Simulated scan of single mutants.
Amino acid sequence: MGERILLVEDDPQLGAQIVEHLQGAGFEPTWWREGRVLTAEGLPRVSLVVLDLMLPGTYGLDMLKSLRSFSEVPVLILSARNDTLDKVRALKLGADDYMTKPFWPEELIERVRARLRRPTLQKAEAVVEVGALRIDPQAHEVSVQGQPVELTRVEFALLAALARRPREAVTRQWLVEHVLDPEREGTERTLDVHVSRLRRKLGPQHGVETVWGVGYRLVPGDGS
């Protein structure tokens, strides 16, 4: 079987359709028909959570909030609520994607696949060293050849995202969606400005390489 997906959806017809499409795409879905208070012990071992918001039992955003207190498993929100404030709140609470109902099942499957291909923040991240560049996600510290580098919140988030997959390209779209502030206008041009500033702070021999047509990646520099 493929990767395990937890679906939390109270609509019996829609839930059955989603389960069928997930199975057809090679995934192994577990279907909960109501919201539950989540704990580390009660969460199944899954690679992704597909979560409705308007649920009997425990409201979807409350489930998301409690989930983020102990797990960074990716979460894709499904909701009939199309209000921007609902989307912003879900993203701020830790959702990775947001789809509004009604939707095409084929799009849902592709979003699930895309989300599973993306780097995921782990609850306890190890120190990453790429050449002479050292990133400590837990301490929120960066150094080059032992010298500390002061970064803004966005610059650090950008560098940490790239450090989770060193030497691998991360798309500009993913970085825009997951690094830039969702309450402000996040554009690829804004991302490029942050990358430019980050490069200046790290120095020309250590830093972020452009992958044309894709995005950026973190590589050891010539001076490492």
Rank of each mutant, 00 (worst) to 15 (best):
G2Q: 12
R4K: 12
I5Y: 04
L6N: 06
L6T: 05
E9S: 05
E9L: 10
D10H: 10
L14N: 03
Q17Y: 09
H21G: 00
H21Y: 11
L22Y: 07
G24F: 08
G26A: 02
T30V: 15
T30H: 14
V37W: 06
E41W: 03
E41M: 03
G42K: 10
G42I: 05
L48A: 11
L51H: 09
L53Q: 00
P56G: 13
G57N: 03
L61P: 01
D62R: 15
M63V: 13
L64D: 03
K65Y: 07
R68M: 14
R68D: 12
S69L: 15
F70W: 07
F70T: 14
N82S: 15
D83T: 06
D86N: 06
R89E: 13
K92W: 10
G94V: 02
D97N: 11
Y98C: 01
Y98N: 01
T100Y: 09
P102A: 01
P105S: 14
R111G: 10
L116R: 08
P119C: 01
L121V: 14
L121S: 12
L133E: 03
R134L: 14
I135R: 01
P137H: 07
P137W: 05
Q138E: 13
S143D: 06
V144A: 07
Q145K: 15
Q145D: 12
Q145S: 14
E150I: 12
F156R: 10
A157H: 04
L159S: 01
L162H: 00
R165L: 02
R172V: 05
W174M: 09
V179P: 15
D181N: 15
E183M: 15
E185R: 08
G186L: 13
G186T: 11
E188L: 04
R189D: 07
R189G: 02
T190M: 03
T190D: 04
L191M: 09
V193E: 06
V195C: 12
L202Q: 03
L202R: 07
P204C: 02
P204F: 08
H206E: 09
H206R: 10
W212G: 13
G215A: 10
Y216H: 09
Y216L: 07
Y216S: 02
L218T: 04
P220S: 02
G221I: 00
G223S: 15
S224Q: 12
